[in-house]
Design a protein around this nucleic acid. Sequence first.
DNA 1: TCATTAATTAAGGAATTACCTAATTAATTT
DNA 2: AAATTAATTAGGTAATTCCTTAATTAATGA
Lengths: 121, 121
Amino acid sequence: MEDETFDDTTEGSSVGTAQRVFHALSSAPRRKILAYLSASGLTAGEIADRFSMSKPAVSQHLSILETAGLIRREKHGQFVHYSLIENNLVNTLNGFVQEVCPVGRPIKKESQARARVKQAP
Amino acid sequence: MEDETFDDTTEGSSVGTAQRVFHALSSAPRRKILAYLSASGLTAGEIADRFSMSKPAVSQHLSILETAGLIRREKHGQFVHYSLIENNLVNTLNGFVQEVCPVGRPIKKESQARARVKQAP
DNA sequence: TCATTAATTAAGGAATTACCTAATTAATTT
DNA sequence: AAATTAATTAGGTAATTCCTTAATTAATGA
């Protein structure tokens, strides 16, 4: 079976999961939304309040993150609650690192790597 | 000191490292190039041969990957050799996962996660 | 029921991206 | 030196992205 991490044309015409996730992560506002949601679930309005852009713009970012499977949407009365789906993010990124970097290295070097990235970007 | 993983406006006017890396990864051809380079270093021409798009188009993708610090460029005679810089990729992605997901989980769950992402995308 | 609040969808425009072909730079070969 | 090969830069276009305001849907409260 083919791995779809890199090839998004494997299936008929659809866009692959990896493509959706990486595209979702390529936007600073969207990464910021994920960071907010990592602390706690929030309504669409609470998220929009943290940005200077319009509510519909934020709504579209949320939609892209949801389509990528990174966040979930739950309607409670007139509010829409958003929260993080960690697994898809971690799985996709780890899967990608595993494929691109020699097997084993990422795991072993992770602790050091994590420390290093904070001070020397 | 501020963490620039999400906020790309911290510094004067420049685009942040994280933004460059995530943008670089948002393109399927660019991820494919990284995959090729993970096996071995290649010249620009050897890389271009693996794609149906024009050489200049591939050259631009290589430039974006280099600017993101994901690959390195070495001129040998009339050939340009490209190879992977693993650290920046691993550091950026791990740093991001650490910030977005509860500390500890990504490391512990990595093996399972990797297995899971291959069969259930 | 009518007004208010939360959120999304719709429509449109400025800026960016991704590709192409043609031209250029630089190293090698004859 | 002239021709060939490798690679990039330059210029232009179609498609996409990201944001805006206006309109719509849906739930709550007077």
